[in-house]
């Protein structure tokens, strides 16, 4: 193994500091060209431990890089996962300080809230449908701690898959009452349409992204639990935000979620 446990601990501390200081760092593979996807997850797990030891609570998980648009935008070819804590959850109506992040971007997604645990291995779409209590619309604020938002898969995984903040809102809706693959979305910034999309952009079915998340998280020795929120992945590409911006996600059937930036 080329990346030792001591390396992992050091890299986790390095990423942690970059996140806290909102300071861009070179991608980890510059220094550790051998860093694998698995090593990236070792760093992420160590990073999670650091947050939990600081008193943060694990509230859910996110699937990242699940749409063709996102994979194309970031130049990677497979999805990733990241953990969500209570401190990342931004209540609707809050003004988010962009100065607490390096170069924040926003994307819109369907968030699943679990009414039961999901299997950590062999999780299927059927398992996800059975375990989902409801869905809500979400805006995820992502932020890469890497310079110029440029990274590879091991580096982005170590950086908790660019997780930063998330806002959920709208109308809690039973998944079985909507067509989960054709939920339409209009993303609006400062009154101007940024883009439109539909939920099938996420792996053809956002529930498939949740099943994938359950299996990836299972490989980390963890599990998607009852009560957790799972962000199923951006339907659109991610858009940069600046102080003064007001972003709205208008979802078919699920309602609207808003966030403002200072």
């Amino acid at each position: 193994m080329t990346v030792s446990d001591a390396d992992v601990a050091r890299l986790a501390a390095h990423v942690h500091k970059a996140q806290l200081d909102a300071q861009a760092i070179p991608k980890l593979t510059n220094e550790h060209p051998d860093l694998s996807v698995e090593d990236g997850y070792r760093v992420q797990v160590a990073l999670q431990r650091r947050y939990l030891e600081a008193g943060h609570r694990l509230v859910g998980w996110k699937a990242g890089l699940t749409s063709q648009a996102k994979m194309r935008q970031m130049g990677v070819s497979e999805p990733s996962v990241g953990f969500l804590t209570d401190r990342m959850a931004v209540p609707e109506g809050t003004v988010v300080e962009t100065s607490t992040m390096v170069h924040p971007r926003v994307e819109c997604e369907v968030a699943f809230v679990l009414g039961a645990d999901l299997p950590a291995k062999g999780c299927t779409v059927e398992d996800v449908l059975a375990a989902t209590a409801y869905v809500v619309p979400a805006i995820e604020i992502i932020d890469s701690r890497y310079e110029a938002f440029k990274f590879d898969l091991p580096s982005v995984i170590a950086d908790n898959s660019s997780s930063a903040r998330f806002v959920v809102g709208g109308n809690p809706t039973r998944l079985e009452t909507v067509d989960r693959t054709t939920l339409g979305l209009a993303m609006v910034k400062n009154g101007e349409l940024l883009t439109t999309g539909a939920s099938a952009a996420v792996m053809g079915d956002p529930a498939a992204a949740v099943a994938l998340t359950a299996n990836l998280v299972g490989r980390l020795g963890q599990q998607l639990r009852r009560g957790m929120i799972i962000l199923s992945g951006g339907i659109t590409a991610a858009f940069p935000v600046a102080p003064g911006d007001h972003v709205s996600a208008r979802f078919q059937s699920l309602g609207v979620v808003d966030v403002r930036f200072a």
């Binding site: 339409g184 979305l185 439109t196």
Partner: peptide, 27 residues
């Protein structure tokens, strides 16, 4: 039909290639 927000999904040979919604057309 939700004229402005119903999701539009385009597939080529069964694979999703792009998505959108009515709001893209003159709001």
């Amino acid at each position: 039909v939700d004229l402005n927000l119903a999701g539009t999904v385009v597939k080529v040979d069964g694979e999703v290639v792009t998505t959108g919604a009515g709001a893209a057309v003159q709001s």
